[in-house]
Design a protein around this nucleic acid. Structure first.
Length: 224
DNA sequence: TACCAGGAGAAAA
DNA sequence: TTTTCTCATGGT
């Protein structure tokens, strides 16, 4: 599939004007990015924040400390983020992976494709989690195709919405010529927009993309 | 009260 | 190979 670069640019410009600079990802360290990426799987970010605060207060928001923590204690700390048994095990495997690769700096020695493949090899790290980690922790160029991106681009009529993850990622990468910082900003703007306006039940009256969106005009025509 | 939230992997068909 | 099921808490 193909996407028109101009369409992506229009969306970026409108969202950028509406929401301003996002400065993502909300984390202080690359490791915190990685932990947040796992914890936010199918989970609202506010619940992730509670779990992250628990980890920080326990002094285990760094890989070596978290790796040594008994699993039951880790489960208790990440419980507010939901799916806590799975996520504790996934965080543990992520720490094991870091240790195997000589820490963050060691892993950063891998090239883009090698790093992505290696991350995807971790049980519990799928394509979206891997891309979030690649983009925001390792600053590699990729596109995070999350539920928000899928929903917004589908409502705009730019995609069908049921395409495979890889098909969308490659189309979005090809259409966007931005550098890593811009890719990160793009995804952050999509998240902001999905939370404010393009929610599950869209609030089209306050939508910065309404002019370009079939959904928005449909709502307008219906008199909402 | 029911629904929803930035997935991923295993099991079943 | 594709679809369905499971994992779970907390806010609206």
């Amino acid at each position: 599939m193909r996407l028109a670069p101009a369409a992506l640019e229009t969306v970026f410009a409108a969202l950028s004007a509406a929401y301003g600079a996002q400065g993502w990802w909300p984390a202080r360290t690359p490791f915190e990015v990685m932990v947040g990426a796992v914890l936010t799987q199918r989970t609202a970010w506010r619940n992730v924040e509670i779990a992250l605060l628990n980890l920080a207060n326990a002094g285990v928001l760094e890989a070596p400390a978290l790796r040594c923590l008994p699993l039951a204690e880790l489960e208790a700390l990440v419980r507010p983020a939901g799916f806590y048994r799975q996520k504790a095990a996934r965080l543990r495997r992520l720490c094991d992976w870091l240790a195997r690769h000589g820490g963050f700096d060691g892993a950063a020695g891998l090239d883009d494709a090698g790093l992505r493949a290696s991350l995807l090899d971790i049980n519990g790290v799928g394509p979206e989690t891997a891309d979030a980690i690649l983009l925001y922790a390792f600053r590699r160029r990729t596109f995070v195709v999350d539920a928000y991106a899928r929903r917004i681009f589908a409502r705009l009529g730019l995609i069908r919405g049921d395409e495979s993850y890889e098909a969308l990622r490659s189309a979005l990468l090809q259409a966007g010529d931005g550098d890593t910082a811009r890719q990160g900003e793009y995804h952050a703007l999509l998240v902001a927009h999905a939370k404010v306006a393009c929610r599950t039940r869209p609030r089209c009256q306050s939508c910065a993309l309404a002019a370009a969106c079939p959904q928005g005009s449909a709502v307008e025509r219906a008199g909402h």
